[in-house]
Design a protein around this nucleic acid. Sequence first.
DNA 1: TCATTTGATCTATATATCTATATTTTTATA
DNA 2: TATAAAAATATAGATATATAGATCAAATGA
Lengths: 205, 205
Amino acid sequence: MSYATEHIANTLKAARKSKGLSQRELSAKSGVPQGHISKIENGTVDLRISSLVALGRALDLELMLVPRKTIPAVRSVVRSSAHGTLLHVEGIRQFRKEMERLEKTIDDLPRDGQSKTELAHFQRQVQRYIHEIKNFKLTPPEIEPIRAAIRAMKTFKNLTIDGERERQTLTQLQNMRNELAHGAANAPRIEAVRSAYSLDEDDYG
Amino acid sequence: MSYATEHIANTLKAARKSKGLSQRELSAKSGVPQGHISKIENGTVDLRISSLVALGRALDLELMLVPRKTIPAVRSVVRSSAHGTLLHVEGIRQFRKEMERLEKTIDDLPRDGQSKTELAHFQRQVQRYIHEIKNFKLTPPEIEPIRAAIRAMKTFKNLTIDGERERQTLTQLQNMRNELAHGAANAPRIEAVRSAYSLDEDDYG
DNA sequence: TCATTTGATCTATATATCTATATTTTTATA
DNA sequence: TATAAAAATATAGATATATAGATCAAATGA
């Protein structure tokens, strides 16, 4: 494995991890098969440009050819734009997974009983929030209430919405929605004039 | 041909031209076969990283993966380091070719007759200058006297050094040498604190 | 423990790459 | 200007290797 290949492999792997993506998830985003990604990250292949560009696009990295004499300046620019995200890499990864589980839980909620309409409305609302949350940038203080809501959500996942528990369940769901709504209302931001923590669009370290 | 591939192809071609290299010369420098370079520049192949890195190394370009949000800043850095070399690309290419022809002419000068020693000395001297000129950077005003010397040199290439023309020929060669010596004396510079025009190590536009 | 997820490996196929040759463009000379 | 010579670039066939798709083993979680 050449030095350049190794360097690229490390960069790609670090970028993927910093976004909390698995090889399969990155595969889905980039169109590059998971098996390739494995080999690429292990530096066992001399990959083609099209693969590198596809992976780069999914990781918000762009391939550039820069004159040698500008390399120090370029490195400096890149470094200065990477905030302390590295410290939070694992946290971001975990938060992402929590979000995905919540999404799945919401989708799979039972839809029977007289609360059908009200529950459907709740589902749509939560789904919209999740979508927003996944597509915008969040700062750590904004993440916390959402994470708390997700934790609360877990307690419902095996309940049905009918019978004697209906009132209690709906009440808790209502609280959930309010928590989520509050979190989401604080969260959405357009692509960051300020320093921001990203879920789908973060820098690598 | 994808956009990214096309962009890379154009960048490589522009960089090669700006150094006045032919595909064959670049091939020799980079180890990439000339036939590939042709296909790469025409965008008919999805080249591998090893090829791109090899070509980049020969052209003083480094492959980098930069976060998307830093691209404008990086472009700015790269642009600001590229002086007005583009305007002179053709001139640099032509000058390089002239130098190479002169080198060949000098090497092939006939070595018979009583002036053997003196001619040999002249040859060595000119060859040393050519070597220096090819390895250091020159500014346009420094290039001119050398170019004039090359033009003058042309008139000798079919002459022998013996018989009746000896004196005249040697006199002219002497002038040549002085011109060259003067040009070379002004020329050598170490890798440029100031803006400089390069023969072997120039930026692309 | 069982189910799911993650990363690695295997095979068939597509395609880049290498060597050699052909074509097109440039340069020099009559 | 016409033409020969040389240089520069493009193409063709054989081979090496990346890639797509399926499968596997280890780790993780309920």
